[in-house]
Write a protein that binds this DNA or RNA. Structure first.
Lengths: 210, 210
DNA sequence: TTGTTCTGATAAGGAAACTTCACAATAGTC
DNA sequence: GACTATTGTGAAGTTTCCTTATCAGAACAA
């Protein structure tokens, strides 16, 4: 199913995790420290990395930036016995996708894996958008403003949108609106009202347009 | 100092927090539910929102998307007595900037505020970049590739960079490199080697270029 | 030295983006 | 029906972006 990397210095727990995940049909590579995880990531692109927090050498959290540099789309789950709210928050701030507390049973492990895959799936689909046309569309402040207005007002008629953005020449605005449509960020619903597409919503959320 | 919004249904704790923060010179607005916090955010732009998790009506986490839509740069701290690792991770996934556990003393509260301000400061400085030129620069796949290569190799000479990106015509590549320089994403150090600027590094981290 | 590669400036021409103007079709209003 | 605001299309024209070609100084090897 998924390609999973495990970094865990406790040999017993490690083999246990490998067994659980392989039994479920996942392809697993297990190592005993963060440095080995990084080099493993250089040779194979994993879907998920389960990183123990405390290991000899680098911690799991410290390795996050390295792993993500090698593979931007890897889901990183920090696993630790000594999880407090503070350590969990810190791990998330540093770029972890989730935090699991030891001990956990097989069901909890598989559930965590499943959820991470589902969450990454959203991002994967958003990456399939045409970066060229999206960036070109965002290069214009008028179009960024249009996207933002559509984000707040959800659905708007042509002239209302035009006035909100502050363009007096409607035909000029029409040009930019068509550019947004062509880039796949904006669409018209059945009653001709303009709304954001799903990619448009994604872009709006992730790009902090200014 | 900072403009802070507090949403907390426990009246005693609320006035206590207000006292602590006002004593430190902050400007504080306090409300008793998430809905009131949202409407307060419509009338004033706060730097920080301290949101209780469990309140009558909407939870603090549920309000996050509303608050952030009204003010993309607000730092949202979820405050709760019943914080587990799971609830903290969930809050972070939903867009919280940090999670604090009750009870806390004045020092912990002020420290949390201070840290959030510092972290947001980084983002604020990155927002000062000229969005027009940055997006225009990113609109070209050759330039995105150049940025990525500079991100991994840290510093590169002109021809090495040119070959890595896969352009045979160096003068054409030179054009795009200059565009990147003009957009403030790339610079040359004292020995003429090309490196990313801080804004370049920021863009590379936050934009998941494809 | 001579030649070669690296690094870059400049100018010309084409392609794409953007604006503006002119003109319709439609819908709603009196 | 007459009138107006809305929602477009299409064709100039202008500006900006991008490519290509030419040349030239600097670094470096033989």
């Amino acid at each position: 199913m998924a390609s999973i990397l495990i970094a865990e210095d406790d040999a017993d727990l490690r083999t246990n995790m490998v067994d659980i995940l392989e039994l479920e049909g996942h392809q697993v590579v297990a190592v005993d420290c963060a440095e080995a995880a990084i080099s493993a990531c250089q040779q194979h692109t994993f879907d998920i990395a389960l990183m123990d927090l405390l290991m000899p050498g680098m911690t799991g959290v410290e390795a996050i930036s390295n792993l993500r540099q090698l593979n931007p789309f890897i889901a990183i789950i920090i696993v630790t016995a000594y999880a407090t709210v503070d350590t969990a928050v810190d791990a998330m701030k540093k770029g972890a996708d989730s935090v699991m507390t030891k001990p956990f049973n097989a069901g909890e492990l598989l559930m965590g894996i499943k959820r991470s895959i589902a969450e990454k799936q959203l991002l994967k689909s958003a990456v399939n958008i045409d970066a060229d046309s999206v960036y070109a569309a965002l290069a214009n402040p008028l179009r960024r403003s249009t996207l933002k207005q559509l984000g707040t007002h959800k659905q708007l008629k042509f002239m209302d949108l035009c006035r909100l953005v502050g363009v007096e020449d409607h035909t000029r605005f029409n040009f930019h609106l068509r550019q947004l449509k062509k880039a796949g960020l904006v669409q018209q619903n059945e009653s001709k009202v303009y709304i954001l597409t799903t990619t448009g919503q994604f872009v709006l959320q992730n790009h902090n347009l200014s």
